[in-house]
Amino acid sequence: MDYLLLTQRLGQQIRARRLNRGLTQARLADIAGLTRQKVIAVEKGSISVGMTAYARVLGALGCELSVVPASMPTLEEVQGVFE
């Protein structure tokens, strides 16, 4: 599975969790000790963001990372890789 797709999925899951908790990006950044721009990059699944930033955001959301077998990408995800 393409690493860009994996980080994109992680960012989408983080964004969904943030919204589910009723947090703004600015508030999440405050809790995680990051800038709002860094939270935006995490939610986009940016590969230029270090693992520490992802870990801080996950910790601030009360989540942890777990390794599971990857599912097949959706058509939308595959199309996004080529854009």
Rank of each mutant, 00 (worst) to 15 (best):
F82K: 07
E64A: 05
V68K: 14
R36P: 00
L6P: 02
T52D: 15
V78W: 11
S46C: 03
P73V: 01
L23Y: 13
L23N: 06
T7Y: 14
S48V: 11
G50P: 00
Q79P: 02
A41D: 15
V81P: 00
F82P: 01
A16G: 03
R27M: 09
D30Q: 13
Q79V: 12
I47N: 10
R27H: 08
Q79F: 09
A29P: 01
R18C: 04
M72N: 09
Q79N: 12
L5P: 07
A53V: 02
P69A: 03
F82E: 05
V42Q: 06
R18W: 03
G11W: 12
V42W: 13
A16N: 06
N20H: 12
P73D: 02
D30V: 01
R27I: 12
V81N: 03
G22D: 05
S71D: 15
R9M: 01
A70S: 14
M1S: 14
L4T: 08
L5E: 13
D30T: 11
R15D: 06
T7C: 09
L34P: 07
Q13G: 14
A60K: 06
E76C: 02
E77P: 13
V49N: 05
N20R: 15
I40M: 08
G80H: 13
A32D: 01
K44Q: 11
G22R: 12
V39S: 00
Q13C: 02
E76G: 10
V57I: 10
L61C: 07
V39H: 00
L4E: 12
T24I: 02
K38M: 11
M1K: 14
Y54H: 05
M51W: 12
G22Y: 14
L28H: 07
T7S: 14
E83P: 09
V68M: 03
M1R: 11
S66W: 00
Q25Y: 05
R17I: 07
N20S: 15
A53K: 00
S66T: 09
L23M: 15
R9K: 06
S66K: 15
A26D: 14
A53C: 04
E83C: 06
S66H: 13
R36T: 13
E83L: 14
G33N: 01
I14Q: 08
E76L: 09
I31P: 06
E83R: 12
G33H: 01
G11Q: 08
D2C: 04
V78R: 11
I40D: 15
I47A: 14
Q13D: 06
A26P: 04
G50K: 05
V42E: 14
G80V: 01
V78P: 03
A32Q: 00
R18D: 03
L65H: 05
G45H: 12
I47D: 11
L19H: 15
S46H: 09
V57G: 08
E76D: 15
V57N: 00
S48H: 13
A29T: 02
S71T: 14
V57C: 03
L65V: 10
S46Q: 03
V81M: 10
P73W: 01
Q8D: 11
L5D: 10
E43F: 10
L5A: 12
L34A: 09
Y3V: 05
G11A: 12
I47F: 04
L75I: 10
E77I: 01
L23T: 02
G33Q: 01
N20K: 15
P73T: 04
A55M: 02
A55C: 03
